[in-house]
């Protein structure tokens, strides 16, 4: 039983990261009906930028560890958001009125471009975050040994997700995003600046992805230019699992995928872990063709 709970906490920490990245997929999809395959690489850019800023600005020395990390996170999120907006402008906007799959190919091209650009700038070797930025203490949770960092990461993910949810639900621009997701043309007729909505989506999604990249760097320490592909695929799976286009769905899907992976590895097989996760996904889609929280919408393919 103790092992079960230990695996549960393992899964939650991984799932929190998946959820944060999945939000970017789901928001872009909600508004543009585009699978942004370059999103995983925005996540990677976040972790590389975090490393560069961390080692060049000495923020934690100047501002103290807590404030240093917060400032660092804000800078990374801002910069990745800029990259995201640029990506939309260059690679997606010219394709907005063309066949949907054309934009998918453009996204795949952007993904290849980003990861190889990172390789050229930083080199192909694994990059390593300096040690000792985050506290190494662990907390005793009912007999479970949980490193504090994992709790912090899950906490930070949840806080960001709640903030996003409140933003989408309560603010005016959030309402506009939701409106554009339901029907872009109708939203435009109601006086919503759809271009601005799309820009917002491409600022928020990448910012969250960048934050996830920074957290992965800080916690796991080791980053490389290809890691966005794996995380991106998992996060996309999570978004679909929860019902793509649905923001709470991405959160639930991410956390759930992390837990499925951990428990699948623990009780079935480690080597088959990913196959188990995909198997569960396929099963859920057969039973509920729109994902867990997805609404049944008539969609033209």
């Amino acid at each position: 039983m103790e092992e079960f709970f230990q695996q549960l906490t393992n899964g939650l920490a991984v799932g929190g990261i998946y959820a944060l990245i999945a939000l970017g997929y789901t928001m872009v999809y909600g508004v543009l009906k585009l699978i942004n395959f370059a999103h995983g690489d925005l996540f990677t850019i976040g972790s590389y930028l975090g490393l560069t800023l961390l080692t060049s600005l000495f923020l934690s020395d100047r501002l103290g560890p807590g404030a240093g990390i917060v400032v660092l996170a804000l800078m990374v999120m801002g910069l990745v958001a800029l990259v995201g907006a640029l990506l939309e402008r260059v690679a997606y906007r010219p394709l907005r009125h063309s066949p949907r799959l054309s934009a998918v190919v453009s996204a795949l091209g952007a993904s290849i471009f980003f990861s190889n650009t990172l390789m050229l700038i930083y080199g192909a070797r694994f990059q390593v975050y300096p040690q000792g930025i985050l506290p190494k203490t662990a907390i005793d949770l009912f007999g479970l040994y949980v490193p504090l960092v994992r709790v912090l990461i899950l906490g930070a993910s949840v806080v960001m997700m709640i903030a996003l949810y409140a933003f989408i639900q309560k603010t005016k621009i959030g309402t506009a995003i939701r409106a554009a997701a339901i029907d872009q043309d109708a939203a435009r007729l109601m006086g919503i600046d759809v271009n601005r909505v799309i820009l917002m989506v491409f600022l928020i999604g990448p910012a969250l992805g960048g934050a996830a990249g920074l957290m992965v760097g800080l916690h796991y320490g080791q980053i490389n230019f290809t890691m966005g592909w794996v995380y991106g695929l998992k996060a996309f799976t999570a978004a679909i699992l929860g019902g793509i286009g649905n923001i709470p769905g991405a959160m639930v899907g991410g956390i759930l995928l992390g837990v499925i992976e951990a428990l699948g590895a623990a009780y079935l097989s480690i080597a088959w872990k990913d196959a188990i996760a995909f198997g569960v996904l396929i099963f859920i889609l057969i039973v509920r063709p729109t994902g867990l929280l997805g609404e049944r919408v008539a969609e033209k393919v």
Binding site: M227, V230, E261, A266
Partner: peptide, 13 residues
């Protein structure tokens, strides 16, 4: 599975 970041599930097992 190589290329991942979190191996805690495997270590726990």
């Amino acid at each position: 599975t190589p290329g991942e970041r979190d191996y805690t599930a495997i270590l726990t097992k």
